[in-house]
Simulated scan of single mutants.
Amino acid sequence: MEKSQERFDVYLVDYKLGKETGLELIQEIKSIQKHAPVIMLTGMNTGSIDQEALQLGASDYLIKGEFDARTLDRTLRYAIRDSQLMESLDSAAIKFRSIFERAGDPFLLMDGTSKILEANPIFISKFGIEPHSEESGLGYFFTDLIEDQVSRLILMDVLGKKSELYDLETVLKIDKDTHINALISIAKQDANLFQVLIKDLTAMKAKEEEDLNLEKFSSTGRIARLLAHEVKIL
């Protein structure tokens, strides 16, 4: 098993390896290098060993005496290509998970029915929904958070068409007594998985209202000063 500690472009593993079998070696290699391309070589065309090798993570298998140089070359190339692809996908998944967990705004994943599958800590904290809680998360639908019927219909239309939606302003329900103005954007991750980013506009709306009130107060003050001036003249 010493060779399993070393890194190679591809591993060709024979089923018969003395006291141990190639299946045990595949397990050892995969425990160290998750996406290592491994091809099982077997002299038995029984099917059970081959399937077990694939279940353990082997990229493919070849039966001794039943393949030529061209078949071997193609099998090696495909195994290496698939390994590189899986490693890239794994790396991308890790990056996405990091972004998902650290996002400063509520962020969730839902399916085509708007069922919440996963949510980041900010969403859980704000809405009090645990994605893996039987009481609320699993079986809870994002549409249940949307207050107005028009926005719900727009959302379901987007999901039905498997399209995307950006910057829909709506009102979301925190609980029966608390609501927030929000901007929601929906991006399709795959055929039945959608990312939802929620931007809380409550603070912004409050600031806009405050600025408007200040402007009104300022205008009222100007009018009052003008009237006072006119009264003095009179």
Rank of each mutant, 00 (worst) to 15 (best):
M44T: 13
L54K: 12
S125D: 12
D105I: 09
L12Y: 12
L25Y: 01
K3V: 15
L12P: 05
G65F: 04
S4R: 08
K161N: 07
S48K: 15
R77G: 11
Q84P: 14
Q27M: 02
Q27I: 00
R225N: 12
E215L: 08
Y15K: 02
A228M: 13
I184V: 06
V38F: 02
G128T: 07
D82A: 09
G47H: 07
E118V: 08
L193Q: 07
S136G: 00
H35M: 10
K19S: 11
A93F: 08
I99P: 10
M1Q: 12
K64W: 05
S151V: 01
E2K: 15
G221W: 02
K64M: 09
Y140D: 01
K3P: 06
L138S: 12
D14M: 14
I184L: 05
L108R: 03
L109Y: 06
L197V: 08
Y11T: 01
G57C: 09
T220Q: 04
F67Y: 15
A79Q: 13
D175A: 03
Y61Q: 01
V196L: 04
L155P: 03
K161I: 00
T71Y: 08
L23R: 00
F100I: 05
E87A: 13
G128R: 05
S48V: 11
R7V: 14
D211I: 14
V158W: 11
V171Q: 03
S59Q: 07
I154Y: 13
K188W: 03
G160Q: 09
Q149E: 15
E24M: 14
L201A: 07
G112W: 01
